[in-house]
Amino acid sequence: MRVRLRVPVAGQGMAEPAASHRGHDALVAPGAGEAVDAALSRELELLAHRAWPPLCERRVGGWVLRESAGSSRRGNSVWARGDVPDLSLALDEVRAFYAAAGLPATVQITPVSLPAGIHQALDALGFDDTGPTDVCAADLADLAGRLAGGTVAEASVDVPSGASAAAAAGSGRAGGTRTLMFDDIDGSWLDIAGRVLSTFADQRAGTLKVLTNLTIATKYVLCVMDGVPVAVGRGVIDGDWLGVYSMATIPAARGRGAARAVLAGLVTWATDAGASRAYLQVEQTSTAARHLYAALGFQPVYRYSYRRYCYRRPHHAGSPAASLR
């Protein structure tokens, strides 16, 4: 039985997501201090944690301190999923943990982060905000239908382990668009990802270590146009969810349907495996991607950001920071 996607709906006990600053962006989700579907938000955070397992983690009360050799903000930040006995002492441990790793102390903040006073505490201690990312979800059947209405690849080809991606790329119809599906990272996939995504360029070593730790079903997709690799994506299946990650298209191929072709390949794979829903994360600055995902029916669930420790502000007695002690 296909499970219908649960999303926050204004007027049904949920606030309309960030109504004052939504504008024409349909994917702006509720952020810290705004009402969300808490159960769905927590579920998606757990899925994302499993889709990017840290190389090292430490528990501090209900928090998970994650470290992954500097690869990705998620892999090197605190997952504030639960309460802590003493907020001030917990933040001291956070700063010490990341200082020992040679990384800036960073806390991922969502509308369901705990404890309730964490936002004010980070403000008082001088944690900056590196910009928001929206988590969005869609029903797979609806997504497949919308993708079928646009330009997609002529075929999706599963490439056996050890087979040549170059040979598979050149075997299609001249002038056509193909998607090649890999169970493991192929060199051509990695080359395209490294041209667009910092996690596969500057942070490649740590990223590859993280991906080798994955224990859930994973598929890597490479889109080839006119025999030339131009776009990539990565999908994971966890329960009935497809997680969409590492979407990247080289600048010269943008606007030609490459991202749609990659998504179509992932959706077909996930549907055949029995999944019924999809989720992804899209940064506020990724304008073209946001337009595409909104057109394909993705709906915002919640917004998160990364708060990074920069300095300790001087404060006087009675200020919010002084009250942390």
Rank of each mutant, 00 (worst) to 15 (best):
90 A>E: 09
91 L>M: 06
94 V>W: 04
95 R>A: 03
97 F>D: 01
97 F>G: 05
98 Y>H: 07
98 Y>I: 05
101 A>W: 07
101 A>L: 08
103 L>M: 14
103 L>T: 03
104 P>L: 14
104 P>W: 05
105 A>C: 03
105 A>N: 00
106 T>C: 14
106 T>I: 04
107 V>N: 06
111 P>H: 09
112 V>T: 15
112 V>P: 01
115 P>R: 11
118 I>V: 15
120 Q>T: 10
120 Q>G: 09
120 Q>R: 15
121 A>L: 03
122 L>A: 05
123 D>K: 00
124 A>L: 05
124 A>Q: 08
125 L>H: 00
126 G>T: 01
126 G>K: 00
126 G>E: 03
129 D>S: 14
131 G>K: 05
132 P>C: 10
135 V>K: 08
136 C>D: 04
137 A>H: 04
137 A>E: 08
137 A>F: 01
137 A>V: 05
138 A>K: 06
138 A>I: 08
139 D>A: 07
140 L>P: 04
143 L>I: 10
150 G>K: 08
152 V>F: 08
154 E>D: 15
154 E>C: 02
155 A>E: 15
155 A>R: 14
155 A>T: 12
155 A>P: 09
156 S>C: 12
159 V>G: 03
159 V>M: 11
163 A>T: 00
164 S>D: 14
165 A>K: 01
166 A>L: 06
166 A>S: 03
167 A>C: 10
167 A>Y: 10
167 A>V: 15
169 A>N: 04
173 R>S: 13
174 A>C: 09
174 A>D: 12
178 R>C: 07
178 R>N: 10
179 T>G: 08
180 L>C: 08
180 L>A: 08
181 M>C: 13
182 F>G: 00
183 D>Q: 14
183 D>L: 11
184 D>C: 06
186 D>P: 09
190 L>K: 04
193 A>Y: 07
194 G>L: 01
195 R>A: 07
195 R>S: 00
196 V>R: 08
196 V>C: 07
197 L>G: 09
197 L>I: 06
197 L>F: 12
197 L>P: 03
197 L>H: 13
199 T>Y: 00
200 F>T: 03
200 F>K: 04
202 D>V: 09
204 R>S: 07
206 G>F: 01
206 G>S: 02
207 T>C: 07
207 T>R: 05
207 T>W: 04
208 L>N: 02
209 K>Y: 03
214 L>M: 12
